[in-house]
Design a protein around this nucleic acid. Structure first.
Length: 445
DNA sequence: TCTGGGGTCCTAGGACCC
DNA sequence: TCTGGGGTCCTAGGACCC
């Protein structure tokens, strides 16, 4: 049996851990650049804020219902995610971290009392991290995902046993099945296949022919035959990309180059973190497709490096070459990005006979820079080309403090009860949260 | 005025090999 | 007029996921 653990409204829940005053009010978290809604509390869903809605289109709704709005704080979410995963792994060591807020667990050693196991996992995560989770348990990963959906409507736990599969599939919409996306569900609905149960009633050959091996796997998994294994986590990435919208539209080469250099440096850093080098890269710039009044231009350029590298200077240098090929003045750019590909472990890089750089020297330099930046803060030491203009930087006007990752942003609380019989927050208090009710418990992990 | 960012896997078809 | 059989590797694009 597999379990799928999924954090409820994860980003919102992270913000609420340190803002207990927002426990019952509508809360949303925005995408980068304060663009779209990417996480909503139940209260926010109830007043009709749609997922993915651009903030400016629902400003009135936000104001009317006094919705708390946060810019995304990935340092905070990443850290809390880590704690959730570690808590889960402390109970069930066979874990696949599937995304920032989801994990599969292999429960084959826990055949009895799966409901009970689910509840104890759920309570433990809540107690140790403050994050509420839902848990679905079933014979295959696809069914565990499905059970997880159902769990959200129950009390957070749902178990599917081999003999209850058919019953569960009957009421389950086909478009909500893991792996069935927009295109395929349209295709299926045209043939009057609306539920997961109807899908599993089709002949196997037809599924294989229409949807290939991927569709066949979903089909069998829904019938309770495991086809998707628990995957090892922490494997090296096969491609790495860094892309950001600009805080405001950019027209000149220097600003775009500055932004792109920062993204390139970030890719190089990510490569070094997984001890890998990239053999090629893909650079793009683009105008804002929503601005119909502007002329559109969205070019990209691919470069094969003479020798795979994770050196910041080298990656920046080739990114600049690519940019030179595609940049044209006269357009208003809103985004640029770089993807590095053909990733290989750094100790098996095929050297180039003609253009090899003295690797060891470079390596020592970069290692030192990484160490310094880890200790002193990001970008303390950086390449000059990464610049000082910062004209392109993201908007994030409602960012919460880095409560768990920066010493000077840690929450401080006076543990003597004040006159209102509440704890007083003495540092990092915000307008609405100067006090914490005595019933709210913090459980540092 | 303002619309995110980061990934994986599969398939068909071309180019090549013996 | 007639032109085999079996295979691998690479790539672009599609579809999906969070």
């Amino acid at each position: 049996m597999f379990a799928l653990v999924d954090c409820n409204s994860f980003y919102v829940s992270c913000e609420r851990v340190f803002r207990p005053d927002l426990k019952k009010s509508p809360v949303v978290v925005l995408s980068n650049n304060d663009g779209c809604i990417i996480s909503r509390s139940d209260e926010a869903k109830a007043i009709g804020i749609p997922m993915g809605a651009p903030l400016f289109k629902i400003k009135d709704l936000i104001k009317e219902h006094n919705v708390a709005v946060f810019s995304s704080n990935y340092a905070l979410y990443g850290d809390l995610s880590d704690r959730v995963m570690k808590t889960l792994a402390s109970v069930v060591p066979d874990i696949e971290i599937y995304s920032i807020d989801e994990a599969f667990l292999d429960l084959n050693d826990y055949e009895d009392n799966l409901e009970e196991l689910g509840h104890s996992l759920r309570n433990k995560v809540k107690q140790y991290t403050g994050i509420p989770v839902g848990i679905g348990i079933a014979p295959t990963k696809t069914l565990a995902k499905l059970a997880n959906r159902i769990a959200k409507k129950n009390n957070g736990i749902s178990v599917i046993y081999p003999d209850t599969i058919t019953e569960v599939l009957k009421n389950f919409p086909i478009e909500d099945v893991w792996g069935i996306g927009r295109r395929i569900s349209v295709h299926l609905k045209n043939r009057n296949i609306d539920t997961a149960e109807e899908f599993t009633q089709q002949p196997e050959e037809w599924i294989r022919k229409q949807f290939g091996i991927t569709g066949l796997r979903i089909y069998r998994e829904l019938k309770g035959i495991p086809c998707i294994e628990l995957e090892e986590t922490g494997l090296d990435k096969k491609s790495i990309c860094t892309t950001r919208s600009f805080g405001k539209l950019q027209t000149d080469y220097a600003s775009v180059l500055e932004a792109l250099s920062n993204h390139a440096a970030s890719c190089a850093e990510k490569l070094r973190r997984q001890h890998c080098c990239a053999g090629s890269m893909y650079v793009f710039i683009q105008t804002n497709r929503f601005r119909k009044q502007d002329e559109q231009y969205r070019p990209a350029f691919f470069i094969k490096l003479p020798e795979a590298s994770n050196n910041t200077g080298t990656i920046i240098q080739y990114a600049e070459q690519a940019l030179k090929q595609i940049f044209k003045t006269g357009y208003k750019y809103n985004k640029c990005g770089i993807t590095v590909m053909d990733i290989v472990p750094e100790n098996v890089v095929q050297l180039n006979c003609f253009e090899s750089k003295p690797r060891d020297k470079w390596h020592a330099l970069e290692e030192t820079i990484d160490k310094l930046n880890l200790k002193m803060g990001k970008k303390t030491l950086r390449h000059a080309i990464e610049g000082f203009k910062n004209d392109w930087k993201l908007r994030n006007e409602n960012m919460s403090p880095n409560y768990t990752t920066k010493w000077n942003e840690i929450l401080e609380i006076d543990l003597r009860l004040n006159a209102n019989h509440k704890f007083q927050i003495t540092k990092n208090k915000s307008q609405n949260s100067k006090e914490i009710p005595i019933s709210h418990k913090f459980y540092p992990s």
